[in-house]
Nucleic acid binder design. Structure first.
Lengths: 154, 154
DNA sequence: TGCACTCTGAGATATTATATCATCGAGCGA
DNA sequence: TCGCTCGATGATATAATATCTCAGAGTGCA
């Protein structure tokens, strides 16, 4: 499966997911999503803005941030807090109708910057258990694992 | 044990830890650490800067950020990535001599802002296992769990 | 038509963090 | 003692990230 194919698939799924939820994936939002998906590593908001300006000269920071907020709410992208950057969700649309989010974790390579989203149920369960023991009602957990990826280790 | 007592204990342990490692806890660094410990929730760098200015009128952003960098390296404080804020480490000095860091997680209450550091080995092990399965050499993991704390639920 | 609502444009501003160069003093060897 | 290096701090400027506010355009609908 080529990169282009996964990109198109992701866009199709994004449209379907928005449709199901009554959310509107406008051309602008769709374009920002494409820009995020096209990047091969997490992208910063201002990098997206620069690219957006190529076709939309009037674009300003709120243009990008509003689109990013929408995409985050819909679970179509994630924010990497340690990098202040954004990345496409690898299984958007797999969330519930009411909660578009799903437990996920990131592996961030310090050497090459490659960032991989995983959904590890062991981690998710351990976090749920820890929250429960503390009498804490879990809403969402950020898990960002930094280190060196398999490719860079080889 | 009163808050003041834990504060003094933490400061003593910080001094001892720096001594052991050949690091210098200068008056400025110590003062910034005190400011972080005195706050009852995570504090932003510029909030610290304002407080620092009360006794050190010439203080500027680098003044604070350099101190924070030092304290982070020594494992005396942690950064909350989701909040862009800093908090005292609850068991500084328990790290190894070579690696001042220890696995830890945060529980962040969205209602009252209270943030609790925990060291849950279940979570730590699950993360190690997930990294290993991906052939990924773990360096450090950020775990920030958002939700509602026990007090706010009651 | 008139109204409510959502989305976008446009400009200003707020917040968080870093780069750069100068200065100062402690330690240390010639 | 002199001069050197090095770590820490002072001081100024700037970069990078994110939000606020007001206005206008389009859409759906009573």
């Amino acid at each position: 499966m080529t990169q282009t194919a996964t990109r198109e698939t992701a866009l199709k799924e994004a449209e379907a997911a928005c449709l199901r939820r009554g959310a509107t994936l406008t051309p602008l939002r769709r374009q920002v999503l494409e820009l995020v998906l096209d990047a091969d590593a997490p992208v910063g908001a201002y990098a997206l803005l620069d690219r957006l300006k190529a076709t939309r000269p009037g674009a300003a920071p709120p243009t990008v941030y509003r689109a990013l907020d929408f995409l985050l709410e819909q679970g179509l992208i994630h924010k990497l807090e340690r990098l202040n950057a954004y990345i496409g969700c690898t299984d958007a649309g797999h969330g519930h109708a009411h909660d578009h989010h799903h437990p996920h974790q990131f592996l961030i390579c310090r050497t090459c910057g490659a960032t991989t989203e995983i959904t590890d149920h062991g981690v998710a369960h351990a976090i749920e258990a820890a929250a429960r023991r503390a009498g804490f009602a879990l809403a969402e957990a950020t898990v960002e694992i930094e280190g060196t990826c398999a490719r860079c280790l080889a």
